[in-house]
């Protein structure tokens, strides 16, 4: 954690000096007063400077990353975590070899890790606006999965049109369901909707004619 110690005529002066050096807002730091300043007698004798230690609070992204790194370490996997901002999402890219254990069957482990990382990063209760939305990826799994799902959507839509009926997909996470909906949103002969309750909620592709 980044922190600095600063002195000033008053506690506020010292804090201000620290905030300028750290280039952060007062809301994002923890302040420890080491020494209350004293003007001394008539400002001449026994005056003491105020001394504070100002520490930058870890951001939610820092927390997410720290959580993930520690879990990966405890799982005995050698990997590093890169942070990338993609719109409203923070993507934590796990880099390393043999990451299959972190992905699991159909990404089950990756999804579980992703869910827990989001909870850990947003543990302290604050308003929604400050929440960080984390997506985990490893070995380009999300991208590959997205392509697989899109192709599956197109194939099933063709089948639905041919047979003039409906087809239900296997249960998926909200993010994966969205990939299916988006893939078929411009196809006017089918409609898509979700049915069932989490975690068994699934997309249905239905013939519209």
């Amino acid at each position: 954690m980044i922190s600095v110690e600063k002195t000033g005529k008053t506690v506020d002066d010292a804090i201000l000096a620290a905030l300028i050096e750290l280039d952060v807002d007062r809301d994002n730091v923890e302040i420890e007063v080491i020494e209350e300043g004293s003007k001394g007698f008539l400002g001449l004798v026994g005056s003491r400077l105020a001394r504070v230690r100002v520490t930058v609070k870890p951001s939610r992204v820092d927390k997410a990353r720290a959580f993930l790194e520690r879990v990966i370490e405890l799982l005995g996997v050698e990997a590093t975590v890169d942070v990338e901002q993609q719109g409203e999402y923070t993507v934590l890219q796990i880099e390393g070899n043999h990451l299959g254990i972190l992905i699991g069957r159909r990404g089950e482990t990756l999804d579980a890790l992703q869910y827990l990382t989001n909870l850990a990063a947003n543990r302290d209760k604050t308003d929604q606006a400050e929440r960080v939305r984390v997506i985990l990826d490893a070995e380009g799994y999300r991208k590959r999965r997205e392509n697989t799902l899109r192709n599956l959507a197109y194939r099933l839509a063709e089948k639905v049109k041919r047979e003039k009926r409906r087809a239900a997909l296997e249960p998926m996470s909200p993010l994966e369901r969205r990939i299916i909906h988006t893939a078929l949103q411009d196809d006017e002969s089918v409609e898509t909707y979700s049915e069932g309750e989490e975690p068994f909620r699934r997309v249905v592709i239905a013939y519209k004619g």
Partner: peptide, 10 residues
Amino acid sequence: RAIRSVVKAA
């Protein structure tokens, strides 16, 4: 379920 899933991987 998520905790179990991660522990199962380990």
